[in-house]
Design a binder for these strands. Structure first.
Lengths: 130, 130
DNA sequence: CGTAAAATTAATAACAATTATCATTTTATA
DNA sequence: TATAAAATGATAATTGTTATTAATTTTACG
């Protein structure tokens, strides 16, 4: 991977985001910093960064991929009401890779856990309106 | 959900499949039984069956959704070599929903675990060729 | 430094998977 | 059996993403 100004800006922008943005969301922000950046450049670099383990690509949350600068082991929860994505600690599934490899005899290279449901804020709102 | 001949055939075909087919794969099989069936009908019914909990939609394995007639709690593994999809027992992550709800205060409605790696057969083949 | 090879870019065409539309047909039930 | 709701087939449209290409930028090295 050679240096590229665009990739640096993409990574910086992702790091500055507490959310787990989609490419489309990131693109809107990037456009204001770097008006000539191309959507293809964004996708190319996000995939490249993910392939090199610098960031993480999250699939299965909704129709598009999301991207996460936090590469520490953790999972994700998407709220069906507000659509926000939250982190879930890896404590909820201890030793899952070792257990899976032991059970199957397969080699696990990567894995992900995705939860769907209602977040605490939205649960509160529902409770209030009743 | 009213009865429909096409939906019955779709469900029967899915049940007869040990694999976890994509819509495209299923469509090829269906065509031979029911030549006039439409791809839109297939997608419509797969989503409908999944929404009603009759089958399960698996996302995040590869670029397309896969469908599973087995609705018992279990996870999936896709081999990056042979592309086959395998079941993984729910034992590898005991009480994950309760733990997640306790940790987050969120309501978990559904979740899925997807593993990527190399299956035992492909590991053997790699070992042999060395 | 200068320059050639390799990597990256912007722009956009192309693609694959899925969903929407709509006129017609099938199903449930009064 | 008449009628309203549900489902269908055909296909257009949409969405998210990747491929192509000519131009530009970056890197390696003489």
């Amino acid at each position: 991977m050679n240096y590229s100004r665009q990739r640096e800006i993409i990574l910086d922008t992702l790091k500055a985001n507490v959310v787990h943005p989609t490419a489309e969301y990131l693109y809107a922000i990037l456009k204001s910093k770097e008006p000539n950046i191309s959507l293809a450049t964004l996708y190319r670099n996000l995939n490249q960064l993910a392939d090199n383990g610098v960031i993480k690509k999250i699939d299965g949350l909704d129709t598009s991929s999301h991207f996460d600068h936090n590469t520490h082991e953790h999972y994700h929860f998407i709220c069906e009401k507000c659509k926000r994505v939250f982190d879930v600690s890896s404590d909820v599934a201890p030793d899952i890779v070792q257990k899976t490899e032991a059970e199957t005899g397969f080699l696990v290279k990567k894995y992900d856990i995705v939860f769907n449901g209602i977040c605490r804020d939205c649960l509160e709102k529902i409770k209030e309106s009743n």
